[in-house]
């Protein structure tokens, strides 16, 4: 059962090219579908223009203005960006966010890879996979509150367990040193099973005969893993990394619910800083400029990873 679903999913990714090819031949005679197409696409087009395209352009425009929500935006050129370059809080937010992304992605990917291997080779039931997915289905707010309680300094169960091991209590949310690692751990907890399922789908796509050949050649399990599984899994891993890294950079919910950027500036991640500048301090121009920078960072990160991916795409064929 597990294999059929996952195998079914993989061709679906590759199918469009082929399906489109055959489709276009039979469909030639209907060249003039434009009017019908406009009808079908109209609602989505309204949403696209009003809530994606225009806001994107407007966001870029606003980043060059001074705009407190009262009055009109006033064009000030690149002044916001100049100010940001000298803004210690921005650099702090960037450093804090990068720290979060690094801890979160490293932990989450390693754990998910392990879980995916377990899902493929030992724990094959859908029930188990579903159970591991459960945290992912919960809202960030719920995950945050749940751990806010479990990790409470005074009477949280985790601190009792830590004490039981003979270690000192940890102020998970209250100390500058722990605030970001704690946020990263919460996110890892929530995303671990989900990421594992993505990687698991990739594992299922590796044809069995590759393993059989390796076995005939007398490869050890460790060799098989490093020389076959990992290289063939790489395109999927890179895709998973793109999705999860981009998601991590936009951490907001858990921070907003628990530490509110504190203690001091320890967990003021980029998106929370943007939120504060724009909505708490009504500085929409500055907030927009920060958002543009976040956007550029994400695009760069995706671009770099995508380039890295392209070279490996044909590994399976």
């Amino acid at each position: 059962m597990t294999t059929t679903t996952a195998r079914g999913a993989v061709p679906a990714r590759k199918a469009p090219r082929g399906a489109e090819g055959t489709a276009s031949r039979g469909w030639r005679r209907n060249h003039g579908d434009l009017k019908v197409a406009l009808f079908f696409i109209a609602p989505a087009m309204i949403g696209f223009i009003a809530f994606f395209l225009v806001p994107t352009l407007r966001g870029i425009y606003l980043s060059f203005t001074e705009y407190s929500i009262l009055g009109d935006p006033e064009w000030i050129g690149a002044k916001n960006y100049e100010a940001i370059a000298k803004d210690p809080l921005f650099w702090n937010a960037l450093a804090v966010t990068c720290q979060y992304v690094l801890i979160n992605i490293a932990l989450q990917t390693a754990l998910a890879l392990g879980l995916a291997l377990l899902m493929q080779r030992v724990a094959k039931s859908t029930l188990i996979r579903g159970t591991l997915l459960l945290p992912y289905l919960m809202a960030n707010v719920i995950a945050a509150l749940l751990w806010f309680w479990l990790l409470d300094y005074q009477i949280g169960i985790v601190n009792y367990l830590i004490e039981g091991l003979g270690l000192p209590r940890v102020a998970f949310f209250g100390s500058e040193q722990w605030a970001i690692p704690t946020q990263a751990l919460i996110n890892t907890w929530r995303h671990m099973g989900y990421t594992a399922l993505l990687i698991f789908a990739g594992l299922q796509a590796i044809p069995n005969h590759v393993y059989e050949v390796a076995n005939l050649d007398g490869a050890s399990p460790t060799q098989t893993f490093w020389k076959i599984t990992m290289p063939l899994l790489r395109p999927v891993l890179v895709l998973v990394l793109i999705v999860t890294v981009i998601g991590s950079f936009q951490v907001f919910d858990t921070v907003a619910v628990t530490t509110q950027g504190g203690p001091v500036n320890a967990s003021r991640v980029l998106q929370f800083y943007i939120y504060q500048r724009a909505f708490t301090e009504s500085d929409f121009g500055y907030g927009s400029a920060l958002a543009v920078i976040l956007f550029v960072i994400l695009a760069l990160v995706a671009f770099i990873q995508m380039k890295f991916l392209r070279g490996n795409e044909s590994d399976l064929d």
Binding site: P55, G59, L62, Q250, Q271, I274, G287
Partner: peptide, 11 residues
């Protein structure tokens, strides 16, 4: 690809 925060402000 556009991060939600980016469109959230103008929206």
């Amino acid at each position: 690809m556009v991060p939600p925060i980016f469109t959230a402000l103008p929206n």
